[in-house]
Amino acid sequence: MKETLIITSVFDRLSGGNSNKKPNENKEYTMKDYQEMLKEYKDAEAEILINIATIHFENENIPESIRTLKKAIKIYAEIEDMGKQGLVYDLMGDVNRYNNNDSSAIENYKKAYKFYFKINSDYKNEIKEKINNLEILESAGDSQTSYNYGLPSTTPSEVPTPDVPPSDYSKISKKIEEVIGILNGADTYMSYAKSEEPMEQLENAYEMSNGIGDDSAKSTLLLIIGYVSLEKFKTNDALKYFNASLENFQEIDDKKGEAVSRLLIGTADYINGDMEKVSSNFRKSIKILRDMKDISGETIAMELMNSIYEE
């Protein structure tokens, strides 16, 4: 339907402009008018190509999606639209990123950044962040090992080890809250963690969720109880709760819950200085979120990783 509408709109333009206006048959067009019209048609053609590329992407035909986007870039280069060139490179980066081709994605994003930078686009900071996130993942060995999901790692971790113990836990803590917030209903239960007697409230809620068979809430509450323990630097207690939560989420086949549990386990491992486990859990988590195409979840997860590796 979307395609039909777009194509109709192009034919409207070819038949003399906006469909609401009657073509002005008596108007004499100058060279400049024709050049502008030509530019407009080319712009429309590129837009259609982007839409086609999107459909290829949704149908998981990645090579065709990339080929079509490249055609769109050529047109935008011809009409010298730097903003749109940046946009299409940005899209190509996204497509490659979801195809686990991180190095190509970084290359695309860098090209997009150049264009955005030249026109001082607001998107330049966003693209910079995408580049940083992917580079961190690459340095953590994500792209090489993501297909080994589930297999025990026998090679030494390539994750950069922080030089000092966490000096600014509050920064990590804030990110942990955001990560937990990915889960449905977590914001409500997080409010218990802010109450005067958080553990009492959380344990009460946990018992209630257990009693009524609300397994999802039960697992989320375990994560939050672990988070409260982590805030008190009871890291081993926190790990115990995070692992119990992971087990529960796996039992009910809640992938997002599993991803969040692994992020928190990774964070606790980091505080314990167990960097190999940090890398393994973060990689598995990112892989799950990526497979789920949960863009915002992945972004939040990467921000947590950033705050740890940048410590």
Binding site: A205, G211, L221
Partner: peptide
């Protein structure tokens, strides 16, 4: 406030 989609919270509030 609570939510029907958060039954454990609803029951905590009932308590």
């Amino acid at each position: 406030s609570s939510s029907v989609s958060n039954p454990a919270d609803l029951m905590v509030k009932v308590g």
